[in-house]
Write a protein that binds this DNA or RNA. Sequence first.
DNA 1: GTGAAAGCGCTAACAT
DNA 2: ATGTTAGCGCTTTCAC
Lengths: 356, 356
Amino acid sequence: MARRRQSVTIKHVAADAGVSLQTVSRVINNEPNVRPEMQERVRASIAKLGYVPSIAAQRMAGRRSYLIVALNDRERTIADWRKREGTDWVDQMMFGGILKCTEHGYRLIVELVDTHSDHIERELLAAIASLQPDGVILTPPHSQNQKILEILDDHKISIARIGSLTDGPGFLLTMDDEHAARLATEHLVELGHHRIGFIAGPPEYELSGWRVVGWKAAMRDAGIDSGGLFAQGDFSFASGRAAAEALLGGDDPVTAIIASNDQMTLGALEVVREHGLRVPEDFSLISFDDTPVIRFSHPPLTAVQQPIAEVASRAVELIISDQAGKKVSREPVVVPASLVVRNSTARRRPALKDTA
Amino acid sequence: MARRRQSVTIKHVAADAGVSLQTVSRVINNEPNVRPEMQERVRASIAKLGYVPSIAAQRMAGRRSYLIVALNDRERTIADWRKREGTDWVDQMMFGGILKCTEHGYRLIVELVDTHSDHIERELLAAIASLQPDGVILTPPHSQNQKILEILDDHKISIARIGSLTDGPGFLLTMDDEHAARLATEHLVELGHHRIGFIAGPPEYELSGWRVVGWKAAMRDAGIDSGGLFAQGDFSFASGRAAAEALLGGDDPVTAIIASNDQMTLGALEVVREHGLRVPEDFSLISFDDTPVIRFSHPPLTAVQQPIAEVASRAVELIISDQAGKKVSREPVVVPASLVVRNSTARRRPALKDTA
DNA sequence: GTGAAAGCGCTAACAT
DNA sequence: ATGTTAGCGCTTTCAC
């Protein structure tokens, strides 16, 4: 067992600068009560010796751990990884999260927890005990899990909740799913579509509801009755297929579909084609997830692009500011998603009976 | 600032079980010299109190940090993330790495460092000082960076080097790139191709060379002269284009190309089509990276699939075993890549002059 | 404004 | 086989 020691510690710096440990500590942490000249001297020694504080020691001494945990759903994340389709969500979280963390000397650790199990509490407590993170970024469906929120809050860990607006502790961040759904719907309306079906995500996800609201509102604004155009999905490919079958089944089938994630969109696409319809000539399709599968699909699909990296970055900022003791507004942070128009949406082709 | 304390410490467990701290510590770390009944008693208390050791404290006391760092090239990783094409490499490393880490109470932290800069040394030392990882997983081109190896070795940090076989400290892991290149080449030979071009990756990557060797060997075994069929690339789309132009330019152009990564393959595909050739009817193409872009390309491309997750998992195993003081073989670990045949490779269509 | 002392939770080395 | 002691590197009191 190699007994590794820190090569340059605060002691070395103190000795080199000819000051006390305390003064060095103050400089490191940008605390007051240090004369500029002392500051300078200490900083010079730090630079000279290449000193970097040990986060383990900092954590031990009761200060911050400089660790932020990104909590993700184990089952879903692993399934995504296994498919090797470009998980996107975790990737993009890391993209935004790591870069922002680095700016502040923080690290991001991805933790997978089992939502469905009852041991979520045990898993979470274990993660907290071993890591003692300064903050946790929660993604749906964890963002609204009261048990998780309660535990984190009890431990005075800063919380950033992505995709949730329900009451409770923590900072709220959304991508304005309602507006995004509206954008998607309006795009289709402008292309002449009236029968615009919507495949919703599971109700356990708050954002599923927001998207439905946006779609319904846009439909109403366009003077279209959205009755019978709604289908419930569960984010799975199969549910996308089933929903599309339902929407295409009646005697007044839809001419366009907005599906709440990539898998359901792909499922719908398959069904649309089975019905002998071409995309986008005969049928328009919009995905609510701009993942690689969607982008490299044929045709490349029009999609709602969610700024996950940016949201993760903001989440990290909020946590760090909060931990630094700054007063941070609890107003929800909104980083709006946008619509990327590709080749799965086109002007509605008049149905035969219309032209007759 | 909230002064967060461990809620349940080793002291509580010791008190509850009526033993000394040391005994608890021994039980936690599966050390000898504890009677089964004591073990039992301590474990019961641990379970009862829900005790989990603080890794910060464990690290402080000179033992392991239970942290493994996955070192990646900053520039390239960020570029991949920004493109949102499904980075795959980082994703897959996390997939294999995190799961294996979890089994042993370890955590994986992704660190990005700037290879090209001279401050790589400073960056690395800073990461070591602040994190004090037990091990580091190196990916190309870091795997063979002597400076990095030296620093890590000096700090007695276990090293897992993916894609390198050069001398130096650390465990070696490869996906048998030579064999993979051979597989790809043989596949094309079987389809009747003779003029099989190869676009190599930059020589800074050891595996670039291995792939070339595999291709050349397979060509030789098939009795084909590989002269003039080699093109140097640098993993960029543009270099793939340039290389393909060169290979298609002469009076005896290639009928198939193997490119050493996804971007170059895509570049080559573009050029092939500009030459009026259809894939796979007129031209066969194999990618040496089975990323989402390749899989969802049109047609879906035949590709070498690299078992990155599995390699990362093995890397973690090696590091953990090494840290546990076990004698671990320094023999290179080989997790062979495989060829996934899709629709970008087909039987060679006889050239006009052949049929004449 | 600066320093000295105590202690965070744990393990190493040395008792017994 | 078990307990005791002395730190690890840092921050937090609380002195000066």
